[in-house]
Computed example of a mutant assay.
Amino acid sequence: MKAASISEIKKELKHRSSEDLLELCLRMGKFKKENKELLTYLLFESIDEGAFIEGVKAEVDEQFELINTKNYYYIKKSIRKILANIKKHIRYSKNKETEVELLLYFCWKLKDFKPSIKRNTTLKNLYDRQIVSLNKLIAGLHEDLQYDYTLEMEDLLK
């Protein structure tokens, strides 16, 4: 079965009743965990973006605590998983400020992580790519926010 394009789906949804839309959303939520997480964000968490960010940060803290530090292989694997989880939350939000906040927090956690990421090329490169990405994101924000985040980036890079 070939999936319809987004524009085709949008046109079809315009012709459906609210009961049909409700049923479609609930049915979609049953199929994948990501669909359910997105619906949860849209219905409950998008109202207060600050609380959403704090919740994700708490989740990141928890994940960093659980990292097996015996071997760099496990560290790399865990850190990539944490970053993928952060990126998933960023996709849900679609808010550039949220993206910058979460990536900055990730970079701070990575910088302060013991054992140091400087001893491993892969982790250092991952950190550097996030810094480059953050610089691009910050450049696209409002001037006041650019200034605030640029100061935080300077602190991070010290």
Rank of each mutant, 00 (worst) to 15 (best):
M1S: 14
L26I: 11
N125H: 13
L21V: 04
L141R: 03
E65L: 11
C25W: 11
S7N: 14
N120M: 04
G140N: 07
I6R: 12
Y127E: 01
K111P: 04
L83W: 05
K88T: 10
W108N: 09
M153Y: 04
S93W: 04
L110E: 03
K30N: 11
Y73V: 13
L110A: 07
L26A: 10
I82W: 00
I75Q: 00
T40I: 06
K33D: 09
K118V: 02
H15W: 03
Q130V: 08
E143K: 14
E34A: 09
K81A: 10
K118M: 07
Y147P: 01
D144M: 09
K109G: 00
E62C: 15
R119Y: 06
E62F: 15
G50N: 14
Y105R: 03
T69W: 03
N35G: 05
K77Q: 11
P115T: 07
S133Y: 10
F106A: 03
Q146F: 06
T122V: 08
D112T: 02
I75C: 04
S17A: 09
S17Y: 09
F113C: 00
L137K: 05
T121I: 07
K57Y: 03
R129M: 13
N35Y: 10
D128W: 09
Y72D: 03
E101Q: 09
R119S: 00
T98A: 00
